[in-house]
Design a protein around this nucleic acid. Structure first.
Lengths: 180, 180
DNA sequence: GATGTAAGTGAGTGCACACCTACACACTTT
DNA sequence: AAAGTGTGTAGGTGTGCACTCACTTACATC
């Protein structure tokens, strides 16, 4: 027993987020994820009972990490009025543009939402996000605004707009604070 | 000669938008698109020199149709002040939630943007959109807002949020005007 | 009616990939 | 030391799919 299955699952998930983020669900073979985690394809499949299970778990892990980021930012900016807090959270989300992985995976998950299990996971993620923002004191209108601009972040990352130095691209990226 | 190649290409493209919209690039076999257009797979492949060419052409057709929709809305609301005009355009875009196809394909295209040809097509689409909105008199800040909420439409459609009758989902869909 | 050309297809070919089965190893328990 | 249990893998199987090629029609031109 080199390791426990639970521990393997954890590192496999971590790698899965990155690898799936690169090419999406259908375009990444399980071998790629398994190789990144240093285990065999067969074992990876068995640890999550199939490719779909692995992907869904990766999406959930992605949500987990995003929520954690936002919670950390909220804790850091505690005590501010809701307006300022929301802005801090927005900045925190925009910071993820640098990571790319988490935002990319969100987009890939969205595009596979027609698979019931994935769609459910995506909805669950946004449900949690909305609940979190409400608990932070945000109005529904502000939440909608937050999510809309979050989606804009996704576009910026997937289309690589932050690497385009043209006026039209800057119209979309301006004000989206991130260390580029 | 039942038909000209050009005519075939047109109907094939039309079907391709719908069929690719359903399951995305990697998950839809060319046979499905060809069948929907009533021609053989071999011929479909040859008409667009490969699956990738077909997909990119479909994405471009999608942009074409969206721009046409917006231009029509702009013509309808001509003479209004920019504020009102932008609102009309936003409504027009939200109407597409009913169609689903055009918005779904946008998301799928985004998720395959790591393929250079697709990424270029996606960027070209947004470039045209920004130029159009500028010509309509919109400020960059308004354009960014327009696109952000457009992305929110994409989320609503792909995740099927307009079919979820829960409070958190309504926080995201409220005010997005569309005939549901 | 012979020749040319463009439209259109059926039947492959090869490959990538998800999943399975049988087996091997490590470590524990009695 | 024998048996049991959980970790891990090598290799095989079947299938789905993009792409090719040889071939057949439909029409045009002379």
């Amino acid at each position: 027993m080199r390791s426990t299955a639970e521990a393997r699952r954890a590192v496999l998930l971590d790698r899965a987020v990155s690898v799936f983020a690169r090419n999406g669900y259908h375009a990444t073979p399980v071998t790629a994820v398994a190789a990144a985690a240093g285990i065999s394809e067969a074992y990876a499949l068995r640890l999550f009972s199939g490719k779909l299970g692995l992907f869904v778990a990766a999406v959930e892990a992605c949500h987990e990490r995003i929520l954690a980021t936002l919670e950390a930012a909220a804790a850091r900016a505690a005590g501010q009025e809701p307006e300022k807090l929301l802005e801090s959270l927005g900045d925190a989300y925009a910071e993820l543009i640098a990571d790319r992985d988490l935002l990319l995976l969100q987009v890939h998950a969205q595009s596979v939402s027609d698979v019931p299990e994935v769609g459910a996971a995506v909805r669950a993620g946004y449900k949690r996000l909305v609940h979190f923002l409400r608990a932070a004191g945000a109005e529904d209108r502000q939440i909608q605004h937050f999510v809309a601009y979050g989606q804009l972040c996704h576009l910026i990352v997937t289309a690589g707009l932050d690497g385009v130095d043209e006026s039209w691209a800057r119209a979309l990226t301006d004000g989206m604070r991130h260390v580029s």
